[in-house]
Design a protein around this nucleic acid. Sequence first.
DNA 1: TAAAAAAGTTGAACTCATTCATTTTTACAG
DNA 2: CTGTAAAAATGAATGAGTTCAACTTTTTTA
Lengths: 208, 208
Amino acid sequence: MAGLREKQKADREKRILKAAVTKFGAQGYRSVRIEDLAEAAEVSVGTVYNYYQTKGDILIATVAMEVEEVLASGAEIVADPPAGAHDALCELIFSYYDHSLEYLSKEMWRTAMALSIEAAATPNGIRYAELDQRLAAQMTDMIVALQQRGDVRTDVDPVSLGHVIFNNLNQMFIEFVKNDAVTLSDLRNDVARQMQPISDLIANRKMS
Amino acid sequence: MAGLREKQKADREKRILKAAVTKFGAQGYRSVRIEDLAEAAEVSVGTVYNYYQTKGDILIATVAMEVEEVLASGAEIVADPPAGAHDALCELIFSYYDHSLEYLSKEMWRTAMALSIEAAATPNGIRYAELDQRLAAQMTDMIVALQQRGDVRTDVDPVSLGHVIFNNLNQMFIEFVKNDAVTLSDLRNDVARQMQPISDLIANRKMS
DNA sequence: TAAAAAAGTTGAACTCATTCATTTTTACAG
DNA sequence: CTGTAAAAATGAATGAGTTCAACTTTTTTA
């Protein structure tokens, strides 16, 4: 199984990805040249392209790691959400937002999102889309959980609503990364305000 | 006012834009080189850059023309919407979608959207964002119109709701252009289904 | 263990978007 | 009409991502 060749391959790929995380974080995505990554990873330019199809590919790989973490932390919130539809939904949304800048700068997010649209049919574009699907599914899970607990009316379709809410939070996140002046706090406030009417509409009335 | 120089400038810009619409539509955005546009417009490469800052700039200019048309046709629908919240909202959304591929291919939309995220701070990124803002405002206008007519409950904030609905239709449009296999008809069906819970929640109850 | 095959690495060459010093064209003053 | 300043056009040069034919290393075969 693990012959010398396999070991070297795994090692080289790891070195390239590590170099990418380090250099992208330090200098920004655009100003890092493939040659720089190759040098830091002690391989040639051609070898970088042997492991990743494009420069964007390398970025998507780092984004995917981040989103996996976000999904894991979101699952914990779905398992035991705060009381009330609005607070529960916002808690989940905010957990996404708060994690978002841990490893990735806004510039990196912008590039990754642009790639996910422009190169949607490539392996990495597909990978990115799958991550989005899983985030939307997690929002649906949250709504189902709230319905079961009696916080949300049972006559709304959780799948449609989950997608609508995810699409909204995603679009709001795009606006956030598009503008360097907007803070995480601004984003939280905007989304909380925007979610209010939805929350009110889907909340179970306390009493007649 | 209209000296020779002004006339020539306007003429050259028009020629470049016309070459872009033609060539981008025929060959796709990526495979058209600036040199091709320059040749078709009978100017030099440097002159193209004298009129547009980047290749993406040229694309955004064509997108802006399209969106202006979409806004105009949307305004007619807001002025006299079909009966019922769901039908009225869907009619407006569908008018956007139906116009979308008139001048622009999916590939061109993908590139334009990617640019609007990646180069959000550039003049064209800002221009694109403004167009989005106007579309969202039009959705808010529609909700206000429906409230005034009694089709929609008056206790929901039309601005927040308008943005949520716009964000959703925009994200659904992104998914549409990302995948060449999805048809306009698929998109309409998906969005109609997705809007149903929202429509139900905001509709004025006919009677107690 | 030695030769042949397979897999992987390499970096110079290629393509394009973009820039900028030079040249050309237009406007305007005398 | 002529000279000069301003504006614009030009296209060769630059730089970065990407490709690919030749070269090495590893594995397999006998």
